[in-house]
């Protein structure tokens, strides 16, 4: 399948403003970040979680610990077709029990990734509270899951694809809507 860029939704500055606002909101919602840790969902939630942690540090002077969660083994979109997706390591080097964990992902769509992430997180400890931060909410939820912090709401059709590009993986920071080229 080939994809064509249809529209630029956020450029680097817009992403930075959105993440800065989320950093403030995380701080306010939890009355400080003493007990807060960020866990990014692979792949692009990881770099976003690191960016958020740096922004929180510049606001509060405290850098929350950051981990990365691989949810491949927790997905529910099982089909026997095609190769099994490659599994990567979960890298959460701190004890999550008793902490406020902010899950970070690039896009929330059906909610199934977030559901898998909740299960994956719960298997490595018992957080005091779990919150969800996403850069883009594109609607079309299939599960009763609602993010606590949203960078931008983007109404989309199901055929469209929202791609978040991050410097660490893609070499640039931007958000675009793509469509499949027939």
């Amino acid at each position: 399948m080939e994809f064509r860029e249809k529209a630029l939704i956020m450029d680097e500055a817009a992403i930075r403003r959105a993440l800065t606002r989320i950093a403030h909101e995380i701080n306010e919602a939890n009355k400080g970040v003493d007990n807060v840790a960020l866990v990014g969902i692979r792949r692009r939630g990881g770099p976003l979680a690191h960016q958020l942690a740096s922004l929180i540090e510049s606001i509060e002077g405290i850098k929350p610990p950051v981990g990365v969660l691989d949810i491949t083994l927790y997905r529910d979109d099982l089909t026997a077709l095609g190769p099994a997706p490659i599994v990567h390591r979960t890298e959460v080097d701190f004890n999550i029990t008793g902490k406020i964990i902010v899950l970070v992902d690039d896009v929330i769509f059906t909610g199934r990734t977030a559901r898998a992430a909740l299960d994956a997180l719960m298997d490595i400890g018992r957080p005091k509270r779990i919150q969800l931060a996403v850069l883009i909410d594109r609607g079309h939820r299939e599960l009763p899951i609602k993010p606590d912090f949203v960078g931008k709401n983007v109404p989309t059709s199901r055929q469209e694809i929202v791609s978040v590009l991050v410097e660490e993986i893609d070499g640039e920071n931007k958000v675009v809507i793509e469509e499949i080229v027939e």
Partner: peptide, 13 residues
């Protein structure tokens, strides 16, 4: 896992 595990949906979410 590689022999039995699930494939991926076209669009993750």
């Amino acid at each position: 896992y590689l022999m039995l595990g699930g494939g991926r949906d076209e669009i993750a979410g």
